[in-house]
């Protein structure tokens, strides 16, 4: 989270960062936001922030289940993406 950023702004920034280069990911994130809506808690948001730092192809491999993450902070959010 950036200094002085309020929660609403943080979620809106995250939403924009879900605009990706691959349609596959756009569709997964679209479903994810429909389900998660605005009730992501702070630790979810922090995990999502880190996940969104990944390259698109790597992110898609995680989201589609072709690869797993061994990062405990990311596991929960990856699972939610897969279920979306």
């Amino acid at each position: 989270m950036r200094p002085e950023e309020d929660r609403g702004a943080r979620l809106r920034r995250l939403r924009w960062h879900c605009r990706r280069a691959l349609l596959e990911l756009d569709l997964v994130f679209q479903r994810f936001w429909r389900q998660a809506g605005d009730d992501l808690n702070d630790s979810d948001a922090a995990a999502l922030e880190r996940l969104l730092e990944l390259e698109d192809h790597d992110l898609w491999e995680l989201a589609s289940g072709r690869r797993d993450t061994d990062d405990p902070q990311l596991r929960g959010i990856v699972e939610r993406l897969r279920q979306a």
Partner: peptide
């Protein structure tokens, strides 16, 4: 750019 350069659609 609207998104980080290496997230442009050329990536696809």
């Amino acid at each position: 750019t609207k998104v980080f350069p290496t997230r442009s659609h050329t990536v696809a």
